[in-house]
Design a binder for these strands. Sequence first.
DNA 1: GAACCCCCTTA
DNA 2: GTAAGGGGGTTCG
Length: 936
Amino acid sequence: MTRLVLIDGSSYLYRAFHALPPLTNAAGEPTGALFGVVNMLRATLKEKPDYVAFVVDAPGKTFRDDLYPDYKANRPPMPDELRAQVQPMCEIVHALGIDILRVDGVEADDVIGTLAVQAADAGMQVTISTGDKDFAQLVREPGAGGGSIALVNTMSGSRTESDAAVVEKFGVPAARIVDLLALMGDAIDNVPGVDKCGPKTAAKWLGQYGSLDGVIDNADAIKGKVGDNLRAALARLPLNRELVTIRTDVPVGRAPDTLRLRDPHVDELRVLYGRYGFNQALKELEAGSLAGDGAGLAAVAEREPARARGGGFVAAAVTPVAVDPALSVPGRYEAVTTIDQLEAWIATLRRAGSFAFDTETDSLDPMRATLVGLSFAAEPGHAAYVPFGHDYPGVPAQLDRTRALELLRPMLEDPGVRKLGQHGKYDLHVMRRHGVALAGYADDTLLQSFVLEAGSARHDLDSLARRHLGYETLKYEDLCGKGAKQIPFSQCALDDATRYAAEDADITLRLHRVLAPRLAAEPSLEHVYRQIEMPLVQVLQRIEANGVKVDMDELRRQSGDLSKRMLAAQQRATELAGRTFNLDSPKQLGALLFEELKLPALVKTPKGQPSTNEDALEAIADLHELPRVILEYRGLAKLRGTYTDKLPEMVNPDTGRLHTSYHQAGAATGRLSSSDPNLQNIPIRTDDGRRIRRAFVAPPGRKLVACDYSQIELRIMAHLSQDAGLLRAFESGADIHRATAAEVFARPLEEVTGNERRAAKAINFGLMYGMGAFGLARQLGIGRGQAQDYIALYFSRYPGVRDYMERTREQARERGYVETVSGRRLYLEYINARNQAQRAGAERAAINAPMQGTAADIIKRAMVAVDAWLGELGGAGGSSPALMILQVHDELVFEAEEAFVPVLLEEVGRRMVSAAQLSVPLVVDSGVGDNWDEAH
DNA sequence: GAACCCCCTTA
DNA sequence: GTAAGGGGGTTCG
């Protein structure tokens, strides 16, 4: 069978550009997109197709522009960094022996469509390699003449080669795809479809009425808002259909059988690969194995020993950019159900010296989860699942959990055997709660990914597998369902569970092989990972397990009190409105205030609706009593709904305490985030809010101790900017906002007024957030001109700060990322965006991230140091003289025996201030009390 | 029930 | 004007 691959070059280029970090070669030329494309091409060539074409768009008007002048009208121009890679890409494609097709006045889609149909008609097996879903309309199963057209999606790695597959993906067969697209429209190409009609709705209609014409004929029968939208869009649907139909009859000037793959120009490739720093490709080239070797380019990972790979075209076709095929093969997974099997596996894992593992449980909450099984992998492609908690009619025999854990324990608790995991903090919790003190937890792929690609990628296992391995994992929902119909993992059939669980361990192991070398190649990132993030895993696990005691009665009393006051506010609001309405509904409230009561709508939501937020209500509070009543109600409702009602529900019945969950990869800047419940946003500013802190208490005989860094981010700004004035201010130990006011308003420290200090404080904070005059004016309620004057004055007094900020923006633009003092990186996807709002947003993030992120690095180091000290003291849980129980960005909270408090203050304070050596001193404030409020 | 909006809490 | 999580309403599947 003759095989033709048609590559949607433009689609690849854009995809690789956006998918990969902004890499450059030694000369500083951008290479990211190029790198992706080259990897994809090499993977394609390894499958030895007979004919290949690399199709790209040509400049110039096409028939679609004639049909519809606004076609692609809102598409931004190609970014410069991408444009710079087009010519080198063409050179490499050519040198690889692949023809480039560019037909004036014809879009690449239509060139591909035409060639695909011609080739399939001639009996060829055609694969269209693209990320564009529109091509689904061309899918053709093998016919009488043997010709076929299949799609390969470069991002998901999926292959679509049958009508059934098209139906599964889009809900309609290939022949109806154009109808579907016509209804949906295409925002990228500026083709408006039916408003609010997405793929599901479109497929549903087409299922009901057969075709677009059927839908048009029956438009009156469709109810609801979407029905109205459909009728409003009727006139343009036929045009839409024409626009989305890929032409298969355009003149392309080449017949498919003239696109034969030629021999590569090795000399040219050597030069090009060398120039762009594609070392793996170069090595492969020198080995003279361009078409045969399995080493993927991206595969900075060590090569796995050769092994069987999927045969035929599929294996490479599903291999997207930048993947070592050896790391994306299907796995061999086995269930371990006998002692002999288990012992054999334990021997294997020990022999390997390191292995990936994963726990399967019945709950996402590690403090409540019961272990259902464990999985292990020591070499890619081979993994075991040890089930012991599956429970459903007819379940096969399993090992006893206690017995299995006792056999595994020596290995799991042996620090000399390295364990790898994905989000291992969860597994550490579960194992600890089942009596196993797991040791030797050496690597975590979640954290590897987080440190390598913060800000530019997701870090969950499924995304990592797709991105780094070109591997599509089984989904939990496919096994156990979702929503109300979800079954616990323990009721999942053993065969399915084995495939799923073993895959998790296997994929984790494979990911580690890809990510570890990438980290090793970046010493500063490796340092952050090894010295900060990995040690912190255990610390966070302990903090979470410690939990915090809450006074449930106090919270219930507060709930009752809040309810009474809410009711009163509600009654008053009803009187004022003259009717009942839902105070919780911004929509109803907006209608009442701005339409019925005709109050001025001074603030708009981002979507242009009149806002009812605090600013808006304050602005009209002097015109009517109702806004203040609403504000009062909102404040009370927030406290009750989010805190006093919810927190008692979340107290763990076993421990009687509240256990939050800290997300180590939660914020791109390096900060932690907290959830379930979020204990990092417990109120403090208002008196009502602070009462909630009084419900966070120490048990009898113990105290709560809160230690927080004073002005840590401003101190970091002083350190980073090395501004003489700011450094001096911190060195002198003065109140920094007062000192700033004295500088800006040019008067002695003691003569600074309250208002001046307030303004200086707003400037200090605003600058750290990258704020401009507009924001400062709003914050201070002054004119924009005056705000601008303040800022100018500030920069004239602290010129080092201004220079630092400009340098930071520049670095961000040039490198695509900014760094903390520790070398942690944050990638800024939109720093060079054409869209000015996006770009401005990225610049603000660039200004803030080094400060926020450095603060996060510092407190993380402090936590590791403090935890190590606490560990030396011995004792655990309630018997320990002190426990670390909370982290709130710049604050650590401890629960300690009363007599131990002085030692704790001394030792913690020392470790916190020496967690980093900056150009200014770090200062820690502390407080002690019976509850969290008093401890401040 | 999911996805989105709007609003609000923290550092 | 940075970084988060979360509640309630609304709308649609």
